[in-house]
């Protein structure tokens, strides 16, 4: 009952996308080699002997923008969905709690690609909205479940005494949540959310199967016209690699700043 006011426990959620820390020198070096290697390779290909690669580099950038839009839109919406799901999962109201848990379990039990198809076509059946919006909603619904677990763990990592102190000052549960718990939980969930962002950036390539012209789809379009599959996918892979490495780094730096702050 007497929670020590220890610094927040680190939580370990998230999968795949590892963000290299300065302390992890092995990964850090690997990051540099991969990042600058990929950029060098891009330059070499683009300005090399054959014009073929330059043509690809000129064709695909529209797709990069779409990939960003989908990723950013999905992550923002997924954070909202995840916050609601996370709060639902810790709710003492059995109905709300059950509903949130059901959502998380169902989503986690179905492959992302299947869900994407399902939600995309289900939406298409009832409402008329742009393809990209459908894709974003579908991605957010999927990622919201994982995000919900991150928020739940983040909120639960805040010592119980914080809620009790807020309540005993006369705050309502909602006020205590908003003013005291969530601001602290947010710092805890930022690293795993960063991981989710990277994972989502990669998974956003799945929307190319729907009628969304993201980076991968632009590549496919180009490749099927020119039949230069190998060259095109080399470029596509390199661009994804540069993007993920870049954002991993950015998030890593943001995180360090945050920890230095206090």
């Amino acid at each position: 009952m007497t929670d020590n006011q220890s610094p927040h426990k680190a939580i370990e959620v998230g999968d795949g996308a590892a963000i290299p820390h300065k302390s992890d020198s092995g990964l850090f070096t690997a990051w540099r080699i991969a990042f600058f290697g990929a950029i060098a390779l891009c330059l070499f290909l683009a300005f090399g002997r054959s014009d073929q690669y330059m043509a690809i580099f000129k064709f695909v950038p529209d797709g990069i923008l779409v990939t960003f839009k989908v990723t950013l839109g999905s992550i923002l919406l997924a954070i909202v969905v995840g916050l609601i799901a996370g709060l639902g999962r810790i709710s003492t109201n059995r109905f709300i709690n059950g509903l949130a848990s059901l959502y998380v379990e169902v989503i986690r039990g179905i492959p992302l690609l299947v869900q994407l198809f399902y939600i995309y076509y289900a939406l298409g059946r009832f409402v008329k909205i742009p393809d990209m919006v459908s894709a974003i909603i579908a991605m957010a619904v999927c990622y919201g479940a994982y995000m919900g677990e991150i928020f739940r763990a983040g909120i639960q990592s805040i010592p119980k005494g914080q809620m009790e102190a807020a309540l005993s000052l006369g705050m309502s549960r909602g006020q205590a949540m908003r003013q005291v718990i969530l601001p602290q939980a947010f710092k805890v969930v930022l690293p795993p959310i960063g991981n989710e962002f990277i994972a989502l950036l990669k998974d956003s390539s799945l929307v190319s199967i729907l009628a969304v012209s993201d980076l991968l789809r632009r590549g496919r379009e180009y490749a099927s016209e020119t039949f230069s599959y190998f060259e095109t996918y080399t470029v596509i892979a390199l661009i994804y690699l540069v993007m993920t490495l870049f954002f991993s780094k950015l998030i890593g730096i943001m995180e360090e700043r945050l920890n230095d702050g206090r």
Binding site: D3, Q5, P159, G161, A165, L169, S172, K187
Partner: peptide, 20 residues
């Protein structure tokens, strides 16, 4: 209960200040 808690303060063993 909020009305009651407004009128009755509580001080904890572990302080429970808001660290942020």
């Amino acid at each position: 209960i909020c009305k009651v808690r407004e009128e009755v303060g509580m001080v904890f063993q572990s302080f429970n200040l808001f660290p942020h």
